[in-house]
C-alpha cells in the first residue's frame, strides 16, 4: 500500500516545487499578495507545469501502446521513427507553407508520423520474434535514417537551427496561449485508455486477438493513430523527448505486469513524475540558465535503462 503512494506523493511534491523554481524568485506568500507574481504563475509557471505533466504522461502511454503493437519491450515512438516522422511533417509545412497555423503543422506531423510508424510496424512484423533486440536495433536505424533525412532537408533549406526546436525537447518556451493544444494529446491518451484491454490482447499475438473476437487490423491502426497523434503534438509544441516511452512502461511492467487496464494509470503517473523531475533538474543545475530537458532525460534514461537491463527480473509478484 505504501509503495502505491510513492508516485502520487512525488507528483504532488514535485509539482509544487516546480511552480517555485525559476529565474524570478517567488515565495508562497507572494502569489497571494503580489499581482505580478500571480500573473507570472498564470502565464508561465502553471502552463509549463501542465505541459510537462501532459507530455510525460501521454508519451509514457504511447510507449506502452507501441510496445504492445510491436510485441517488443525495447521500442518507443521517439526512437523508432514516429517522432522523426513528426519532425519531417513539421519541416515540410515550414518549407511549403511558412505561415501555416499550428493546427496545420500538427495535422501534417501526425500524418507523416503515422506513415513512418506504419513502415516500422511492417518491418518489425517481418522479423523473428525470437530476436527482440534485433527489432529494437532495426528500429533505431530506421528512426536514425528518417532523422538524418530531416537534418539533410533542413540543411538544404537553411533551417538547421530551426529543427533543433523539434528534435531537442524543452519546456522553456511554454507560455499561456502556446501550449493548449497539448491537452488534445492528453485527450488522445485518455481515449486510448478506454481500449486498454484491446491493446493488452494485441500484445498476446494474432491468434489470441482473433480468437477473442478482436478486429486485429482495426485495433492495430487505432493504436498506431493514437501513438502518432501524441508524438506529433509533443514534437510540434515541446520537441522530441527521448526515453520516457521506453523506460517508464518497462519499469511498471516489471513491478505490476502487463494488464494495461491496471497499469496504464500508473504508467501515466510515473511518466509525468519522471519528466517533471528532469525538467526541474534542467532548471536548477545551471541556474539561472536552463538545459534542454531532452538532454537531462537522455542521461537519466540511459542510466535507468542500464539498470533495467542488468537487474534480474522479480520471479514472483
Amino acid at each position: 500500500m505504501s509503495r502505491r503512494l510513492i508516485a502520487p506523493l512525488a507528483l504532488v511534491t514535485l509539482s509544487i516545487l516546480s511552480l517555485f523554481v525559476g529565474v524570478t524568485e517567488i515565495g508562497t506568500g507572494d502569489v497571494l499578495r503580489d499581482p505580478e507574481a500571480r500573473a507570472l504563475m498564470l502565464t508561465s509557471r502553471l502552463p509549463r507545469l501542465f505541459a510537462v505533466l501532459i507530455t510525460g504522461a501521454s508519451l509514457a502511454i504511447a510507449g506502452a501502446i507501441m510496445q504492445m503493437l510491436v510485441r517488443n519491450r525495447f521500442v518507443e515512438p521517439m526512437t523508432v521513427g514516429t517522432g522523426q516522422g513528426a519532425a519531417l511533417g513539421v519541416l515540410i509545412v515550414t518549407i511549403a507553407a511558412p505561415g501555416a497555423p499550428l493546427l496545420v503543422q500538427m495535422t501534417l506531423a501526425a500524418a507523416t508520423a503515422f506513415g513512418t510508424s506504419l513502415g516500422f510496424l511492417a518491418i518489425a512484423h517481418r522479423m523473428p520474434p525470437s530476436q527482440p533486440f534485433l527489432v529494437a536495433l532495426v528500429g533505431l536505424i530506421y528512426g536514425g535514417i528518417i532523422g538524418a533525412g530531416v537534418t539533410f532537408v533542413a540543411y538544404q533549406a537553411d533551417l538547421l537551427q530551426y529543427i533543433d526546436i523539434w528534435t531537442n525537447g524543452e519546456f522553456s518556451g511554454i507560455l499561456q496561449g502556446r501550449y493548449e493544444t497539448l491537452w488534445l494529446a492528453a485527450a488522445v491518451a485518455g481515449l486510448a485508455y478506454l481500449a486498454a484491454d484491446q491493446f493488452s490482447i494485441l500484445g498476446m499475438g494474432r491468434t489470441v486477438s482473433i480468437g477473442l473476437g478482436l478486429n486485429y487490423g482495426q485495433v492495430m491502426l487505432f493504436g498506431l493513430a493514437a501513438v502518432s497523434l501524441v508524438s506529433a503534438m509533443t514534437v510540434t509544441i515541446v520537441g522530441m523527448i527521448p526515453f520516457v516511452g521506453l523506460v517508464v512502461p518497462n519499469i511498471v511492467s516489471r513491478i505490476m505486469g502487463d494488464d494495461l487496464r491496471r497499469t496504464l494509470p500508473q504508467i501515466a503517473l510515473s511518466g509525468a513524475v519522471l519528466v517533471l523531475g528532469a525538467d526541474i533538474l534542467a532548471r536548477v543545475l545551471r541556474a539561472p540558465y536552463e538545459m534542454p530537458v531532452g538532454t537531462v532525460l537522455g542521461i537519466m534514461g540511459a542510466a535507468l535503462f542500464l539498470w533495467l537491463l542488468y537487474r534480474p527480473a522479480p520471479r514472483v509478484r
Binding site: M68, R71, P129, S200, G203, M204, G205, T207, V208, G211, S253, R254, G257, D258, D259, R317
Partner: peptide, 11 residues
C-alpha cells in the same frame, strides 16, 4: 493458441 506465442507478463 500455441504456448510460445504468449509473451506478456500476466498473472
Amino acid at each position: 493458441p500455441q504456448t510460445p506465442e504468449i509473451a506478456p507478463r500476466l498473472s
